[in-house]
Design a protein around this nucleic acid. Sequence first.
DNA 1: CGACGATAGTTGTAGATACAAATAAAGCAG
DNA 2: CTGCTTTATTTGTATCTACAACTATCGTCG
Lengths: 148, 148
Amino acid sequence: MDKPATNIDTIAKTCIAGRLRLINRVVSSIYDDALRPFGLKISQGNILIFTGKLGIASPVQICEYLQLDASTLSRNVELMRKNGWLEEVPGEDARSRPFRLTEEGKRLIESAIPAWEKAQAEAKELLGDDFVSSLNKAAKRASESNRA
Amino acid sequence: MDKPATNIDTIAKTCIAGRLRLINRVVSSIYDDALRPFGLKISQGNILIFTGKLGIASPVQICEYLQLDASTLSRNVELMRKNGWLEEVPGEDARSRPFRLTEEGKRLIESAIPAWEKAQAEAKELLGDDFVSSLNKAAKRASESNRA
DNA sequence: CGACGATAGTTGTAGATACAAATAAAGCAG
DNA sequence: CTGCTTTATTTGTATCTACAACTATCGTCG
């Protein structure tokens, strides 16, 4: 009710961003470790997955879904294209550079699924059911937020 | 009960790491925007906060609390030292390089608190109470996990 | 059709992040 | 005291990330 003076200890104990970033580091490392044998990191893995879901994906679509900066996606796509996992698809609008999974990209995903399942189980175990169940709703909200 | 074949759609809909990374991007940008007038980002802010909490902090302590790689911290500390927010403190063990907040660093934190409060409120509003309440427990677990 | 604003991507720059390898000092076994 | 192991940190390298600025194309209004 009252508004106590915020101090360093309060921030250390309650900062949402700090906690999220910490959890993010730990969880990403779980998935990165599991996917390392495939030369894949979860950052790129999620882009591949959404590309596969869309069939033909435009950068702007992926950026909107994942709330990624366009320049970040651009560089990630370039790397995955070099790896042979994605290929460009010519489209009508010359401004856009849509892309899709290559056959090799599809095979990569298929082969990495057991590793993903293992990481997913480990993350669930670590974070607890409460947190994981509330994650969906929060992610939906965040994905739909239009911060710039 | 049964174990259905995991497919791309399942992963897209359920991947914990993907959701966390998405939320992390959105939430970090809320705090970064709020802190930008101070030349501070939330990544460095959290290190400053924990340093302040400890008084004199060693890299290894901060890394353990925040589950940060030592090399990451090393570079972040170097930047903040150049900014005049942190200073080294000589210690007994010549292997360690403990540091603490400078007066300027303390003033920076004090002045940025209202901006932090604003970002914190915005993040809470965006993510919802369920998620935020489950965050503490999850972060504690993640912080104590000894991956690595 | 021509100018102009909106949309889509890329490039320059910089910080955040981690892994592997290198460096340096402490501790310990003998 | 000497050599080996452990601990603490830094450096090399690469990816992830975003902001600002730039380029190219599209749409539209006249």
